[in-house]
């Protein structure tokens, strides 16, 4: 009999944990509102941080001087009908299992409809061009500057790295799924099944581990590749150059250049999560 702590926790600790963490998520909610307000005001006041590093870009400048960000140029992406190069590359590099049932599905980067990705804007403004409405948008973890998932995690299994990446330590994850409830973008997936079952017959990347049943997973901005000086797998795989990746804190970086020249949107800005993923719509 395989008795795993997660199963055990599910059975025994479930009730206690749910009680405790529900509280913490409530508290988290208040803090979130407060934090975003505070952030806003400090931005206007010109805090020390933004003065030294920001140069107009107010948020999320880490002491490390790095904040990884991604800009997806939908103008280029939408031209490549049915292209899944970036998704395939990610799936391979991270050994992401494929399960048919949408409930059991594991997603790191995927395509979704405009009104799912930009829920708020699409409801506020019904007069969006028909073409855009039909465009499949790339969605992934936004590696928010103010990530609600990190706040609710009871074990600090998910955390924000100094470079702005919202990372996961699967060793610590107890599978409580509070982070999934907290994430407003649906960027997290739970391993309901043994992940290796979803990899049967697939070509695998033996350089990168799989996950175990009972943990939550999501896009990691390819931290393991960044550590080796490589670009994220999806960026590298994109043939049309629709994905730009770089350091948002560096005014000379490519992402900053792209953002300077284009009007870019971020998802659900009113929530104050401050995503690191930008979309150029048109």
């Amino acid at each position: 009999m395989e008795l795993k702590r997660r199963n055990f926790l599910k059975i025994v600790g479930g009730t206690a944990l749910v009680g405790g963490a529900a509280l913490s998520s409530l508290a988290g909610g208040e803090e979130l509102a407060w934090a975003s307000h505070h952030h806003g005001s400090s931005a206007h006041g010109g805090s020390h941080e933004s003065a030294s590093h920001g140069e107009g870009h107010e948020e999320g400048i880490m002491p490390s001087g790095t904040r990884w960000a991604m800009v997806i140029d939908m103008r280029k992406c939408s031209e490549q009908k049915n292209c899944t190069a970036c998704i395939d590359a990610c799936n391979f590099v991270h050994n992401i299992p494929s399960f048919k049932n949408p409930k059991e599905e594991i997603k790191w980067i995927w395509k979704d409809e405009y009104h799912h990705v930009f829920t708020d804007i699409s409801t506020l403004d019904p007069f969006v061009p028909e073409k855009i409405k039909k465009t499949p948008f790339l969605a992934l973890c936004n590696h928010c500057d103010n990530p609600p998932c990190v706040r609710v995690c009871p074990t600090k299994a998910t955390f924000r790295r100094p470079d702005g990446i919202v990372a996961m330590d699967y060793h610590r994850c107890i599978g409580c799924r509070f982070c999934m409830a907290a994430c407003p973008y649906g960027s997290r997936s739970f391993n309901w099944l043994e992940p290796r079952l979803g990899l049967k017959g697939r070509k695998l990347n033996y350089e990168f581990p799989t996950r175990m049943r009972g943990v939550v997973e999501k896009c990691n901005f390819c931290v393991e590749r960044l550590a080796q000086g490589l670009r994220p797998a999806c960026v590298e795989a994109c043939k049309c150059g629709a994905i730009t990746f770089g350091n948002l804190a560096d005014p000379k970086s490519e992402v900053r250049a792209v953002l300077k020249n284009n009007y870019a949107l971020r998802r659900k800005p009113q929530l104050g999560t401050k995503p690191s993923v930008f979309y150029i719509i048109s």
């Binding site: 009999m1 008795l3 702590r5 610590r172």
Partner: peptide
């Protein structure tokens, strides 16, 4: 034996 193993597993379920 497996019974000792089982006790061990329950005992060590916190793998921090």
């Amino acid at each position: 034996p497996c019974c000792v193993d089982l006790i061990d597993k329950v005992d060590s379920m916190f793998q921090i």
